[in-house]
Amino acid sequence: MGLWEVQALRFGPGIVPSPAEVGTALVRLLPEQDFWAAVWATISGSIIGLAIAAVLAVPLGMLVGASPFLGASTRLSVDFLRTIPPVTLIPLIVLLYGPSTWMKIVLIVFGCIWPLFVQATYAIREVDPVLRDFARAFRLRTRFLWLNVLLPSSAPFLLTGFRIASTIALLLAVAAELIGNAPGIGREITLAQMGAQVPTAYAYVVIAALLGVAVNLGTGLGQRKALFWHPSVRGR
């Protein structure tokens, strides 16, 4: 906070506002309906994009992980596509969907699908061979095998992928709003900058940062609660 105050004195309020000015702007924003609409647009877009990515990536990843042939066939394509920074696709997606919520959701889906897919693939491959042999020896039904053997064994990998993807979803939502002018916190930052309302822009930046911290802490707590039975959690 002290360093922030020093930088505000150095550059001036027109470039770096003081913490007091940002706090005043934030207090002024809280009662406004447009503020909460922007926050909800960012949160809802992140949730929808993450949910779509999870529905697509997790079953496909587990299927590819369970089949050595599919794993070998898709490895090159997956390794190539996952290295493409999602932000570089914003101009193309804006051209297709315009500065809309769907543009933001498509970008989030593309960015989140790869960590979920990769983690789901690794999850199946890392299942204890003893469990596989046990299921094969007792000729367990496929449904029982997936629900009671494979999914519990894969849960740590899947939840780690979800935690990573949830942070990516929020980052891409704000990026799509900043660059692609989609509704949300990012667009409000841009509008405040264009209107020379620097403290307001910083206030929205603070809100975005607080959302990121909340997402990280919330997903971490949820992961620990869901894996209370896992040795890595019981040992803490």
Rank of each mutant, 00 (worst) to 15 (best):
T74S: 13
A226R: 03
V58D: 04
R224H: 13
G111D: 06
P31H: 09
P85I: 10
P231L: 14
V127Q: 03
L151F: 15
L50D: 00
I189Q: 01
A20T: 10
P152F: 12
K225A: 03
S232N: 10
V174R: 01
V233A: 02
T42G: 03
A165K: 08
I179H: 04
V118I: 15
T190V: 13
V94Q: 07
V16W: 07
W146M: 12
V213F: 14
I164F: 10
W4M: 08
F162P: 00
I90Y: 08
E5Y: 15
G111A: 15
L211H: 11
G71P: 09
L158C: 00
G222H: 08
T83P: 02
A8P: 08
A120S: 11
S100Y: 14
D79V: 01
L92E: 10
S166F: 12
I43G: 00
G195P: 01
M1K: 15
G235T: 14
T83Q: 12
N216C: 05
P231Y: 14
V205G: 11
R143C: 02
P156I: 04
L9Y: 11
P183H: 14
P199C: 09
W36M: 08
V205I: 15
L158F: 01
Y97K: 01
T200N: 07
L30V: 15
M62R: 05
G14P: 03
L145G: 00
T200G: 04
I52L: 14
S18M: 12
R28W: 06
D133P: 01
Q33W: 11
R132G: 07
F138L: 06
Q33V: 12
R224L: 04
W114G: 00
V6A: 15
I179P: 04
V58L: 14
P129K: 10
L60R: 04
E126V: 07
T83S: 11
W229R: 04
W4D: 10
I185S: 03
A54E: 06
F35Y: 12
Y202I: 06
R125V: 13
A208M: 04
G61W: 03
V87M: 13
Q197W: 01
V198N: 01
G45F: 00
S154D: 02
